[in-house]
Every structure is written in structure tokens, then in C-alpha cells.
Nucleic acid binder design. Structure first.
Length: 433
RNA sequence: GGAGAGGUGCAAGAGUGGUUGAAUUGGACGGUCUCGAAAACCGUUGUGCCAGCAAUGGUACCGAGGGUUCGAAUCCCUCCCUCUCCGCCA
């Protein structure tokens, strides 16, 4: 949610930036409701004051009938006006929630993902003296991926992953946790990128994969809910998470953190669930787009002053990880239409997939500023007072897509897959699977 | 699933209708003392909103939402959560 004071002060700017992101917001209406909300709120407060004054007078002796009648009347007026106020507040909140976070100035303006801007290309695309295969061809040939039986048991967009592919996933997890848990490495990435941040290591987390509806909404990740899975229970109102971000980012809701604790850097590992609404017929081959996939996700809580650099650090970490695997990639600055509603800035990393002869998204880094924490009420206590904290989230590795990239880039003529050097220690030293 | 207990400030914990935004203790911070520290003593120590240049004033908040009452942290209802015992179970 955006700061109402900022919207009051900059209505045109907010309207224009929202438009750039593709959101239709009625700022005029919002400000009108806001004004009314303040006015009625003041009237309610006035009545409360009168009630308090009266009960102050009455607390000694026994009240007279007139005084009781007066108190009753005040109460009734207060109740009816409060009801009016809560109606206004509901409308206010509903309108305010429609306003997206504002893109930073360096976010390219664009109407669709086609206008994302390539800002960096890394690595040499591998050349093969044979026609490179897609990951699904290799995966099925090696009996690593079984989608037919998954379809029978669970439906489309599910898969059984088997054999060496599973071992590869666990190797990847080990490698990433060891890397991001290394304070020396974090310090190096910070200094290599000329950042001014603390070298705090990432703490691994296994978060819940279900989330309460109110928390989901406060993270601004519930919508579009057609893409979410709802859990039908007796009296609970739970949803499956679409990313570890959802239960990581909300974990300090309602809390005031000490500035000295920050930044808090977490590496969450969880399964993610997505209905993939509106993607019928898209990416039906292989395991690129599944209803269920595992992901290592970074989440950082920081002060407002350091959050932008934390965002840059997360992108640097993503690049580092991909470089360690030796997978060619390019970096895209996402345009205004493609960064999410809570984003102020977003960067995608797309890996080169020789089997499909194109780049595909494997990583994303989201810079949220205080947009999420305003509703979550996660704050930091400083000498000058309290402030909303800033959140950042970014993919460390989406397991499925990363393995796709490994399979396709490291395939050999005889249908095997070479193991990137950094992962070999976690696969019993095997150089090829 | 059955039976019970409970959710109060940074923490522990008192408070069962008005004098409580909240006792007490601890922690943290500031000060006195000291070469310095400890101890002791003194003081400070919640958040949001509204008005105001500010000082400040007003208002709300004792898990959440409703209700009773002139008046609710205190009484009633619903929900959420935590804990204990039993049962079941990875």
C-alpha cells in the first residue's frame, strides 16, 4: 500500500506512474473519500471527547437521570457516526489498495514484457557438433521426468522427477546454502559491487507452505486469486503459497524490529504452488511451467536507507550463482508494465536454453520499498522514531528451471549431462550424470 | 478428536466496572559517583491517527471483531492464537 500523505501531495504523479504500470486508479475519488474520512473521524473524536468528559464528571457520586440520559444520547450519536465512518474507511482502504507501488525513475516505461530492456549479457552460448536436444527429450530418455504418470495421478502440469535429476536438485540446494551462508563470500560480493552493506550471511529457512488469507492480502500477493490454490477446511481460511516469499515476507508482521538487527537476510526453501491460470497451451512440454515446483528464495528486511543496495546485492548474488554454474544468461530491466504491483523496480535473469534456442526466465528480483510493510506493519525502531522497513525478495534458484538450464547447456552427444564443477562435490564427485 | 488454562507495555507479571496508558520487577538508555568499570542512587523508556510552525492538546489501542453500561483491560458473545493433560500420528 502507498502512503496516503504522499498521494495527497502528489496526485498527478501517482496517477501517471500508475498508468505507466497499467493500473487504472481513481485518485480523485480516493482523495475525496480520504477527506471525508478525516472529517467524519474528527467528528467521532469530538463525540468521544464529550463522552469522556461526562464520565469523568460522573465517576464520583451517583449520576442523575439527566446525566444518564445525556450519556445515552451521546453514545447513540457516537455509535451511528462510527458506523458511517467504518463504511467510509472500508471504501477508502479498497481504493487505496488499488494503487500500485510507484516505479523508480530508472524503470523503463513500457506497455508489455516485450519492452523489457536487456542490460547485460554474460557467458558464451555453448556450441554443439550435434543438434542440441530439449530438456524434456533428455529427461524422458533418461527416465528423469515422468509426466504421463503424473498426469494420470494428479493431472496436467505435474511431474515425477526421478533418479540423478533428484540428486542434482539436492546438490544445487547444498551448494546454494553453503554459498549464501558464507559471510566472506557475501562481503566479497558487496565490495565487488561497490555497495555499502553489512556482510550478514543468509539464514536458511523452511517456511510454511500455507498462508492465511489476511497475510496473503497484506503481502499484496493474493491477487489474482485464480492463480492461487485455496485450501478448503472447516473453519480455516488458508491458501497455498506461490512462493516462499509469501510466508517469509510476512513473518515479522506487526513487529517493530531494532535497527541493530537489520538487515535480516533469509534463504527460504519451499515448494511453490501456482494454478497457472490463463496459460493454457503455453509451455506444455517439459517442466518449465508446473503447478508445483521447488524454489530457493531470498528475502531481505532492511532499513529504507539500505534497501536499494540490498536489491542490487540480490541481483549480484543471482549473477554469481549462475556464473558459478557456468550458464549463459542475460539481465533484463523489467519495464513498468512487467514489474509487479508491489514493485518499485524489478530485474529478471533469463538463462540461455540451447534446446529451445532462446532465453527463458529463471530468476527475478523484486524491490518493494515499504509497499508491503505498510500493511504488514513491520517497522524498525531508530533513534529518531519508528519507520516502515523495506522488503526485497529474489530468486536464488528455481530448481526446475535451473536444472533445465543445466541439462540443455551441459548435454553431450550421447544424451548425458556433464555436472558443473561447483556441484560435483555434492554429487559424489561425479563429472557426468 | 476429548478435557482444562490462558492471551496486558521491550520482557516477566499485577490489575475483575470509573482514581489504569496501565502497579511491581527486570532489561535498555541517560545522569550522579569513579582514573575507568561494577555496585548504589536519580531519571527516561509504547504505537497509530487528528489539530498545531512548535510547545502541546485531543483521540484510539491491554489477541481480533461485536455487545451490555452514563462509563469496559475488567461483564457477555463470536472468532483467532498459545499452553497443559489424554487420544491419534510423520
Amino acid at each position: 500500500m502507498l502512503d496516503i500523505q504522499f498521494i495527497r501531495d502528489n496526485p498527478e504523479l501517482v496517477a501517471e506512474k500508475s498508468r505507466q504500470k497499467g493500473y487504472v486508479v481513481n485518485i480523485e475519488k480516493l482523495l475525496e473519500v480520504d477527506k471525508n474520512r478525516i472529517k467524519v473521524g474528527q467528528e467521532v473524536e469530538k463525540l468521544n471527547q464529550q463522552r469522556n468528559q461526562l464520565s469523568d464528571q460522573l465517576k464520583q457520586g451517583k449520576p442523575t437521570d439527566e446525566q444518564i440520559a445525556e450519556g445515552k444520547e451521546l453514545r447513540e450519536r457516537q455509535q451511528s457516526l462510527s458506523q458511517t465512518l467504518s463504511g467510509i474507511e472500508d471504501e477508502y482502504l479498497k481504493l487505496l489498495k488499488t494503487v500500485p507501488n510507484l516505479p523508480e525513475d530508472d524503470v523503463p516505461v513500457g506497455a508489455s514484457e516485450d519492452e523489457n530492456v536487456e542490460v547485460k549479457v554474460w557467458g558464451d552460448k555453448p556450441s554443439f557438433d550435434f543438434a542440441p536436444k530439449s530438456h524434456w527429450e533428455i529427461g524422458e530418455a533418461r527416465d528423469w521426468i515422468d509426466k504421463e504418470r503424473a498426469a494420470k495421478v494428479t493431472g496436467s502440469r505435474f511431474a515425477y522427477l526421478k533418479g540423478e535429476l533428484v540428486q542434482l536438485q539436492f546438490a544445487l540446494i547444498q551448494f546454494t546454502m553453503n554459498s549464501l551462508g558464507d559471510e566472506t563470500l557475501i562481503a566479497k560480493l558487496i565490495s565487488d559491487n561497490n555497495l555499502n552493506l553489512k556482510p550478514t550471511a543468509f539464514v536458511p529457512i523452511l517456511p510454511p507452505v500455507m498462508i492465511r488469507e489476511d497475510m496473503y492480502d497484506q503481502m499484496d500477493r493474493l491477487e489474482p486469486r485464480e492463480d492461487r490454490y485455496h485450501i478448503d477446511g472447516d473453519d480455516d481460511n488458508l491458501w497455498l503459497i506461490g512462493s516462499a516469499e509469501h510466508t517469509l515476507g510476512s513473518m515479522y508482521a506487526g513487529e517493530i524490529l531494532d535497527e541493530k538487527q537489520l538487515p535480516l537476510r533469509y534463504l527460504g526453501y519451499s515448494t511453490s504452488f501456482r494454478q497457472e491460470a490463463g496459460t493454457y497451451g503455453k509451455d506444455t512440454e517439459g517442466i518449465l511451467r508446473m503447478h508445483q515446483f521447488d524454489k530457493l528464495e531470498m528475502e531481505v528486511f532492511s532499513t529504507p536507507e539500505t534497501s536499494r543496495e540490498e536489491h542490487l546485492l540480490l541481483v549480484a548474488i543471482q549473477e554469481y550463482l549462475m556464473q558459478q554454474l557456468g550458464i549463459p544468461y542475460h539481465i533484463l530491466m523489467k519495464c513498468t508494465a512487467d514489474i509487479g504491483k508491489p514493485n518499485a523496480r524489478g530485474v529478471d535473469l533469463e538463462a540461455w536454453l540451447p534446446g529451445q534456442d532462446k532465453y527463458r526466465e529463471t530468476h527475478t528480483a523484486d524491490y518493494m520499498t515499504d509497499y508491503q510493510s505498510r500493511r504488514l506493519k513491520t517497522r524498525v525502531r531508530k533513534d529518531e522514531g519508528t519507520q516502515l522497513i523495506h522488503t526485497n525478495d529474489a530468486t536464488a534458484f528455481a530448481m526446475g528451471r535451473t536444472m533445465i538450464a543445466i541439462i540443455e547447456n551441459y548435454q553431450t552427444a550421447d544424451g548425458k549431462v556433464r555436472v558443473p564443477g561447483v556441484l560435483q562435490p555434492y554429487l559424489g564427485g561425479r563429472k557426468q550424470i
